[in-house]
């Protein structure tokens, strides 16, 4: 999945005080896993899911998997 990080790379992790960086992560649903690049805190690993992704591509994939 090619992801537009939105404003994600501007955000700071509140605990680590570090800006997020694009990092490979896995998203999972109904037993399926997909590799994606998402804005992530380089220290604690907290990962941001932009709204456009959640309500767009991610929703589509969720629905397709639910209909499998």
């Amino acid at each position: 999945m090619k992801i537009d990080p939105g404003n994600g790379l501007k955000l700071l992790c509140a605990q680590c005080r570090l800006p997020l960086v694009s990092a490979p992560v896995t998203v999972r649903y109904l037993g399926q896993a997909f590799p994606v690049e998402l804005p992530r805190c380089p220290q604690c690993g907290y990962t941001y899911v932009p709204e456009d992704l959640a309500t767009g591509k991610m929703l589509q994939v969720e629905q397709a998997l639910e209909d499998k």
Binding site: V25, P35, V49
Partner: peptide, 14 residues
């Protein structure tokens, strides 16, 4: 200001 949700779970680095 806003809210949204998703069902997919974000996991760790592969």
């Amino acid at each position: 200001y806003r809210g949204y949700s998703h069902r997919m779970e974000v996991g760790d680095t592969p």
